[in-house]
């Protein structure tokens, strides 16, 4: 981990424990977020995006468990902290905003009170000072006449306003890391653009890191510095945003990008990725995308693909870019020597 990393997730495994068995959902993911950087985690529903963010916050449901790996925040492993230590970090150093602005605010409390609650808790300010800070925060997120708004209840605000309030709440203690779990999904596009612009502005002003969870590649292109593409609990591709859109390598990423409608071309039908995500207990032995991949061979079904690095930290987990792909494609067989050559391969042309 370099000293500039705000957050580094190393070999994280998360799953659900029931009486008999442990179902692994996230299987060994790695990524890091530098100070002042935005990382987008992309993937379809159920691929473990939200679970990743909940693991960082330490808010996994009761049966959820981090079984392996570490989450280093400022060099400190969060997985080893107890509830009391964690609650000092939550809302203070790491904040979170949620998908549904309509239900993320408590209907029975005024918004000023809700914002100042965590200010009083973490910054030990008086109620009066906290209220002033709440007004400042509302001003910061662009809410008009904030001194009146703090006396309003959530139902008196529109969806976009509420999401701004949520952002104000999350930023009220100057967190080092903001986790945004699909913050714009429930909003209409114009409001969506405003919120993204606001987040970009605040990121530079407050110099914080953002992890944005989304399934909308449009949002990714607006806000991300780096992108982590996840599929079925594994990372398939990790790269900076320009490279990803200019030169997507993994067949899954390519599929995602192709399935966005293009404005400058006439399309009768959008390309789709055939099939559906396999359930956690019937994952293929090899590459998890192999059941839906147009290029899949025997090797893909049976052997976990190696990570292949390219320029500027571009990483792809796919057999297709290994040096022995041609042999693998023809013969479909792997021996130990080939595995070594494969792992040593470099991604060309990225």
């Amino acid at each position: 981990m370099s000293s500039k990393d705000q957050l580094a997730v190393k070999n994280l495994h998360v799953g659900f424990q029931n009486k008999k068995s442990f179902t692994k959902i996230i299987d060994g993911i790695n990524f890091s977020v530098k100070k002042g950087e935005t990382l987008c985690i992309v993937g379809e529903s159920g691929c473990g995006k939200s679970l990743t963010s909940l693991s960082i916050m330490g808010l996994l449901p009761k049966t959820g468990k981090v079984s392996e790996g570490e989450i280093l925040f400022d060099g400190q492993d969060l997985t080893g902290l107890n509830e009391k230590q964690m609650s000092k970090i939550r809302g203070n150093e790491i904040s979170m905003i949620f998908q549904e602005p309509m239900t993320s605010l408590n209907p029975v409390h005024k918004i000023g009170w809700q914002i100042s609650e965590s200010i009083v808790l973490h910054q030990k300010l008086s109620k009066k000072q906290a209220e002033e800070k709440a007004i400042d925060m509302l001003k910061l997120v662009g809410i008009p006449s904030p001194d009146k708004r703090i006396h309003q209840y959530p139902h008196e605000l529109s969806g976009g306003m509420r999401q701004r309030v949520m952002i104000a709440m999350a930023l009220s203690c100057n967190p080092k890391l903001l986790i945004a779990d699909e913050p714009t999904t429930a909003l209409d596009v114009t409001i969506q653009a405003q919120i993204l612009e606001l987040m970009n502005k605040l990121k530079t002003e407050l110099h914080m890191s953002i992890i944005m969870i989304t399934h909308d590649l449009g949002v990714v292109s607006e806000i991300a510095d780096k992108v982590l593409v996840m599929y079925a609990g594994k990372v398939v591709e990790y790269s900076d945003v320009k490279t990803l859109f200019a030169n997507p390598q993994h067949p899954y990423t390519q599929g995602l990008i192709e399935s966005i409608p293009k404005l400058n071309e006439e399309q009768d039908e959008l390309p789709i990725i055939k099939g559906s995500v396999p359930s956690p207990d019937e994952m293929p032995k090899g590459c998890r995308f192999s059941t839906r991949c147009p290029y899949a061979t025997n090797a893909c079904f049976n052997e976990v693909p190696p990570m292949i690095s390219g320029e500027a930290g571009h990483q792809v987990h796919c057999w297709k870019y290994t040096e022995c792909w041609e042999i693998v494609e023809k013969e479909g067989l792997i021996d130990a020597g080939m595995r070594e050559t494969a792992a040593a391969s470099q991604l060309i042309g990225s």
């Binding site: 203070n92 209907p107 808790l121 999350a170």
Partner: peptide, 14 residues
């Protein structure tokens, strides 16, 4: 199960 309860937990409340 509402999100505001999760949000409250996420803001560090016991």
């Amino acid at each position: 199960e509402r999100e505001y309860v999760e949000a409250a937990k996420a803001s560090g409340l016991r």
